[in-house]
Design a protein around this nucleic acid. Structure first.
Lengths: 190, 190
DNA sequence: ACCTGAACACCGTTCAAGT
DNA sequence: ACCTGAACACCGTTCAAGT
């Protein structure tokens, strides 16, 4: 047998720093900030602790890397939305809401907000992301034809609703399929 | 030799729950909330961990007991001040300020305020104490002859100054002896 | 009633040694 | 370059056994 040409295989591959980051997101998502332990990361990645300390100097360094990676992720989706000014505003809003409401991300978002309660850097990152999303939502309302003040109000409601959903929903989260659309119809009423 | 009649001796005596509480205050004072560890308590009291678990069910229970004890301490001094309405208001203020400014208590007060940042129960206790002190200070100003609004302003300034001192001072704290008196003179100007 | 002593689980960190 | 394996320090918790 020849050595496989596909490098990124779950077992048997060497790890990159990003693999540790992704594992961290997973742990955060289903255990909250307190689940962020080196042991559990190693378990998930099938390596020993020594590996962790080759990629990161210590736990604090790893946490910083995680927070920065999360920030970059959100910057990415912000750019995606900013590249949509040509798209129909209603469709743009639908994409925004659908993105925010994906259950897959819920748990991580919630964990970051809990973490923000005790970590300044996390708080700053979350707030930065929130401001950007809010701005994009407001712009969509403006482009839809609402007056600036009206747009500000409606975007605030949409944003607060989504964040509220984040915390209210039990994690089992069978999200009603058509609810986003009905919600948007309501928010776009003249 | 006959067995000594004085029971409360530092070495060789059995411990009460209050001994653990006092040791906790000491640790808090010179190490902050993170210094509150069972090991260090045992070191201080010359016992092993098993002893701790005889007096308290677990760390959380101990913390609750500590917070409650701290609250009682402050309730005590509040009562002391409330029993002073017959005393000259200026003297009353002097006592208040002198009590709050005793370097011996500074470190503990600071630790409690840091702890309050991450513990609801601690926060509640600190705020409860603050309200009571503030009320006593205001009453003294009123009794001194100031109008209610003026008294409210002056008491707020006095209180804020003291709390500010708590955090600003380096812990070495060679507190200027006569400063409280001069401060009071200033605050009692018509 | 109060405490010792030993053990365990958990977690972060280090480091010589392997490939 | 990347990882193992073993060790260490720290900390909370349990419990049989002692006085």
């Amino acid at each position: 047998m020849l050595p496989s040409m596909t490098p990124p295989r779950g077992s048997g591959r060497r790890l990159s720093a990003d693999d540790w980051i992704q594992a961290g997101f997973a742990l955060l998502a289903d255990g909250g900030p307190n689940a962020l332990r080196i042991d559990r990361l190693c378990e998930r990645l099938n390596v020993t602790k020594g590996s962790f300390y080759w990629h990161f100097t210590d736990m604090q360094g790893y946490r910083s890397a995680l927070v920065e990676a999360w920030g970059s992720l959100h910057d990415q989706s912000r750019r995606a939305f900013e590249d949509m000014h040509d798209v129909d505003p209603r469709e743009r809003l639908a994409v925004l809401v659908r993105t925010l409401v994906v259950p897959q991300h819920w748990a991580l978002e919630r964990a970051m907000r809990v973490w923000a309660l005790t970590d300044e850097a996390v708080l700053a990152s979350v707030q930065r992301s929130d401001r950007r999303v809010l701005r994009a939502v407001r712009q969509a309302f403006v482009d839809y034809g609402f007056e600036p003040e009206d747009a500000a109000l409606r975007s605030a409601v949409v944003f607060a609703t989504v964040v509220g959903l984040l915390h209210a929903s039990d994690s089992t989260g069978e999200a009603p399929q058509e609810l986003p659309e009905r919600f948007l119809d309501f928010m776009l009423r003249p």
